[in-house]
Nucleic acid binder design. Structure first.
Length: 480
DNA sequence: GAGTTTGAAACT
DNA sequence: CAGTTTCAAACTC
């Protein structure tokens, strides 16, 4: 029995039909007639209201509705970090950005949700680089393998990310230009079920993306899963867990069982604690994240965790079992360490070092959108240069300090940090710039080394409110 | 590569 | 809202 195209959605075994043959005129008839005006909740992360969009955006929408593609030349009126990221994308990636059907509402082409890196789906991220051409040419960030969803449900990473399937291994795909009407209906249906369906899952804060981790002096941003995970068996330490996959700690939003994805978890630490001091993958990863952070990552953004896994393996080989994951975790810690003064570190023993994840937003991204533009050796060179400069600066500052100490005034400046976040009085840091993995010298965003105060939001936000065995009462470190 | 496990999404 | 089913990714062998 052959039903009208789309009439059997979800398509039970209708995979014989050519994906691209469906005439857009009569597609998907069993979707309830939804309110077409509904807009993707891209604004959920601070996107402008539709009415606020400039005329330019409307023109963009019109263009997109015609082509199904986001004009690369679009000029955002309010450049935000995600926007910058989008613009920084190679055109080959941008071409895959597509806009959700919004018949009456202008597009918000600059919202992170429509970035081609599929920030929304951690799953998508883990395979990102696996889809890069061997020559390094960036290709579609991911390839789904959907068989039954026609790539018109959130099961499909492409669909969930707001991009067309292209080169995927999916069957009976309707997530393409040829089936735009069907796709549009699917989007509407999805939004009907969940207005936030296309909203990023990982937020830098409960209230959305924030430009800087120290924004408004509110301490560090603590990214967390908007909905939280519901893991039962994975302990939230496998990529089944969206939090884990996004490389963030489980939060109070989670309803997981037997969660081990919390700071202080020995199981979690066991996953990424290892000899990484000279791990090039780690170095590259951290640098990558640092650059991303500097360029601008919206927390949810790319945590990209994994999908660059294969690329990393290509670059560095299988130095560790799961380099990407470990890298992310390691880098997370190293940035934390780098951002905290040595004295505060030394006063906090090991795993009890409080909410480490809360201290550093590093987990935001493991794959910079510039990753396709900046090669690892570039990063290495940059790091080398920075190391040199940091070294020189450190020496100069140390000399200066010595001078002032000789002059008699300084009685104890052990906690001071230089502009690069390097504790100048800590000889270990002076001589081992990469001691913590990467480093103090990785080009981290300008924000000077902040001294993390336990009283900050980050500290007060126990990522996992549940009481964990190894965490005692899940308390936070009290500075006093 | 096939089969299993897992948890989100979809459905009832 | 809770329970169940479906789905595709992650994982294992």
């Amino acid at each position: 029995m052959e039903k009208i195209e789309g009439g059997d959605f979800p398509p039970k075994k209708a995979q014989s039909e050519p994906a691209a043959t469906a005439a857009s005129a009569h597609v998907v008839t069993d979707y309830p007639a939804k309110k077409l005006a509904r807009q993707l909740d891209f604004a959920g992360f601070g996107g402008a209201a539709a009415a606020d969009l400039p005329e330019q955006a409307k023109q963009v929408q019109q263009q997109v509705m015609k082509s199904g593609q986001l004009p690369v030349s679009m000029k955002p009126t309010q450049m935000t970090r995600p926007q910058l990221q989008t613009q920084a994308l190679p055109q080959s990636q941008q071409q895959h950005i597509l806009l959700m059907p919004m018949q009456q509402t202008p597009v918000q082409p600059t919202h992170p949700s429509i970035r081609p890196v599929k920030p929304e789906s951690p799953k998508a991220r883990s395979r990102q680089s696996a889809n890069e051409a061997k020559d390094g040419t960036p290709k579609k960030p991911k390839q789904c393998n959907c068989k039954h969803s026609r790539c018109l449900k959130l099961y499909c990473e492409c669909f969930a990310s707001g991009i067309y399937c292209d080169g995927c291994n999916c069957a009976n795909c309707h997530n393409n230009v040829e089936n735009e009407p069907a796709r549009r209906e699917a989007v509407e249906a999805t939004l009907e079920r969940n207005p936030h369906a296309f909203r990023p899952k990982i937020a830098s804060s409960p209230h959305g993306v924030r430009e800087n981790r120290e924004e408004a002096g509110d301490g560090l941003v603590l990214p967390k899963h908007n909905k939280g995970c519901h893991c039962k068996k994975s302990g939230c330490l496998k990529k089944y867990c969206e939090c884990f996959q996004a490389n963030i700690l489980c939060s109070e939003n989670c309803k997981c069982m037997d969660c081990k994805n919390f700071e202080g978890s020995q199981e979690r630490q066991a996953l990424f604690h290892g000899d990484h001091a000279n791990n090039m993958a780690y170095l590259q990863q951290a640098a990558n994240a640092a650059i991303t952070g500097a360029i601008g990552s919206s927390g949810y953004g790319s945590p990209p965790v994994n999908k660059k896994r294969k690329a990393h393996e290509l670059f560095f080989g299988s130095m560790i079992k799961d380099p990407v994951y470990r890298l992310g975790q390691l880098q997370q810690e190293s940035q934390i360490k780098a951002s905290v003064s040595p004295s505060s570190l030394s006063s906090i023993p090991g795993p009890r070092f409080g909410n480490a994840a809360a201290l550093g937003p590093s987990k935001f991204t493991y794959r910079s959108l510039l990753a396709d533009l900046i090669h690892p050796h570039d990063i290495k060179e940059l790091c080398s240069v920075l190391v040199d400069y940091a070294w020189e600066a450190g020496k100069m500052l140390a000399e200066t300090k010595c001078s002032s100490m000789v002059r008699g005034a300084d009685s104890g400046s052990q906690n001071e940090v230089n502009g690069n976040g390097i504790a100048m009085t800590d000889s270990r840091n002076q001589h081992e710039p990469f001691r913590n993995g990467v480093a103090n010298t990785v080009p981290t965003p300008p924000p000077p080394p902040q001294k993390v105060e336990p009283g900050t939001t980050a500290f007060n936000n126990n990522p996992c409110p549940k009481v964990h065995p190894s965490d005692g009462n899940g308390d936070v470190i009290s500075k006093s």
